[in-house]
Design a protein around this nucleic acid. Sequence first.
DNA 1: TATAAGATTGAGACACAATCACAACTAAAA
DNA 2: TTTTAGTTGTGATTGTGTCTCAATCTTATA
Lengths: 155, 155
Amino acid sequence: MENVIVKFKDFLKSHNFLWSKEREIITEQVIDNDYHFTADDLFIQLNQKGKNISRATVYRTLDLLEKSHFVSRIQMQSGKHLYEHIFGHEHHDHLICQECGKIIEFQCEGIEELQKKVALENNFRMTGHCLKIYGICSDCQKKKETKNESEREGE
Amino acid sequence: MENVIVKFKDFLKSHNFLWSKEREIITEQVIDNDYHFTADDLFIQLNQKGKNISRATVYRTLDLLEKSHFVSRIQMQSGKHLYEHIFGHEHHDHLICQECGKIIEFQCEGIEELQKKVALENNFRMTGHCLKIYGICSDCQKKKETKNESEREGE
DNA sequence: TATAAGATTGAGACACAATCACAACTAAAA
DNA sequence: TTTTAGTTGTGATTGTGTCTCAATCTTATA
């Protein structure tokens, strides 16, 4: 992961941004988060480690990491944003469980191709997309069944 | 569109909600909006017409219209919500221009089918989805070309 | 029509993520 | 060093959306 730091540094340099201790600490913490996290999660994690970096800087750095495609931002139905690092990751979309909030990643080449086709048909120069499938994961389906059964017994 | 009012009334009745003058006025205004609008757009439109309905009621009624599937809510990257009425409309997804904000609707049966397949493969009971393709529309592509040309001339 | 039960409304306070302004600070190049 | 320009923290501010609760309205029923 060392070279992520190097690459991010390069990105900043080539865009006339500067490197800083804060950006390094934040980037390291982002690397440590193997799952989805909010900007505030990151802020709190840093604080607990005794790194007193302001919220504003966390937000600003996440913006830069997003612009440089090291991090992607996912918008949830609640309106909050989640982030995830995409160092070396393949592109993927998300299945989101409405019961427990679990997020399952998936890739579907067919959908990707069809999206490109749609964009082309509309003379649209596609720069990105966002696909979220909402539903109920298998665990929560089972829990619901169990609950319904016990309710019937209780009657 | 008269029967939209009737159907919404029916929906409310069958769910133990009441009909009110405010809900009627808001629904009529929603019908008048043939394009995407925010909750606040609606609030302002009503105010300009001298209909003094509170923001809270506008939000509450839009929630009901969404629950009854007369309106759908789209989440933008900014975090804001747009609404659109779907009276009689087919389901569709959106192409969103990052330059001018234009929204183009499209339908793609293939993508729908593949989504169902992905959900099935993950034992996910799909309840909905959200697909947005971001990019630059043909108009804005042309504008950019023109701008670049004149910049080159100016050098 | 009168009444009661319960849903709806408006006003403004509130919650919350995210952004902003600006003075103090820091990085990098000469 | 010195200079220049980017970065930071603080705390205020924005903006969307939600909540509370007393007053009001709807509807069903008598």
